[in-house]
Write a protein that binds this DNA or RNA. Structure first.
Lengths: 162, 162
DNA sequence: TCACGATTGATGCAGTTGCATCGAGTACGG
DNA sequence: CCGTACTCGATGCAACTGCATCAATCGTGA
């Protein structure tokens, strides 16, 4: 262990950091331009609308989104403030709650996907063939695994997906 | 235009976002554990130490690091507060200044590289062959689009960006 | 040489994030 | 039933970020 990384590994690291932040910034900016809230907000709405009954425990949302607990708590605050979701009592566990997406939330999620998917197509899809995109997926997945485990455990204090 | 992205493109996008943030968090966390400042700080020191005379105009640093102007200004504040860099008058242009890395800054940059490169090796290098790392680079570069210019040089010894 | 637009860098403000910790509730062994 | 350890979610605080705007200086064209 403690070996030195190869030139190729360092180059891949740098690209991964720079390209991701560049593309993410661009996409987030386009969404903001169009008057939409942040991607984190979209992701949460998307998870909620995918869940049966349109509701999830915050702790589930946290796991899905790979966010630290406090970030989830505050994200839900914002969704509720905006009328995109509502907190529901959880009768089975009085510590907890359910977060339920509202109609406005479902509607926003659908409208955001129009802009979001267009941005993905513009900044990713149009630049790679499907085969290359799949190849990129495969390579990235090989980096992802170890920290998914570390993350599954460490999420509660401090790891974040964004 | 405004076409829908393929499944593969969306999958690549999601991987890019998740894997990057996951690996970045892990690496940043390891550096912090070891008592080091943030990667942004490392990157700035790295750029400065690479510059001739160990000094740069803030506006140059900004371009190298792809940071907004105010972020650079504040990053320099922090470096100066920590004694890692010093502001120098720029006689040729009195609006401007030079930022010069100090001995402490050079020393920290070298010590951080030990930990940083080990983390890159652990989380990237050891998971991909050099050929695969190069392939990943190539695919990412095709997404890198407009933000690529500044990055071309940076492979030398461990620059990155957020 | 002077007026005006552009460049350089700093900063006030509001919003967000990370960290630590808290209070409430649950689960479980005895 | 109780005590202890754990899970769930919220929050105070400090740091950091994005945005808008500022003052100072520069450079250019008339």
């Amino acid at each position: 262990m403690r070996r030195k990384p190869s030139i190729e590994a360092v180059a891949a690291w740098i690209r991964l950091m720079r390209v991701q932040s560049c593309v993410l910034n661009t996409v987030e900016h386009e969404l903001k331009e169009a008057g939409f809230p942040s991607l984190a907000c979209y992701d949460a709405l998307s998870e909620l609308s995918r869940a049966q009954a349109g509701e999830l425990r915050p702790v589930e949302l946290e796991k899905q989104m790979l966010l630290p607990q406090y970030a989830t708590s505050r994200l839900i605050d914002r969704l509720v403030d905006e009328g995109l979701a509502a907190r529901r009592e959880c009768k089975a566990d009085k510590r907890g709650q359910f977060v339920e997406i509202t109609e406005a939330g479902r509607d926003l999620q659908k409208r955001m996907w129009q802009a979001y998917s267009a941005a993905i197509e513009e900044h990713v899809g149009s630049k790679l063939s499907d085969a290359d995109a799949a190849k990129l997926c495969g390579l990235l997945d090989r980096l992802g695994c170890s920290c998914n485990e570390a993350q599954a455990l460490a999420v509660r204090d401090g790891a974040s997906a964004r």
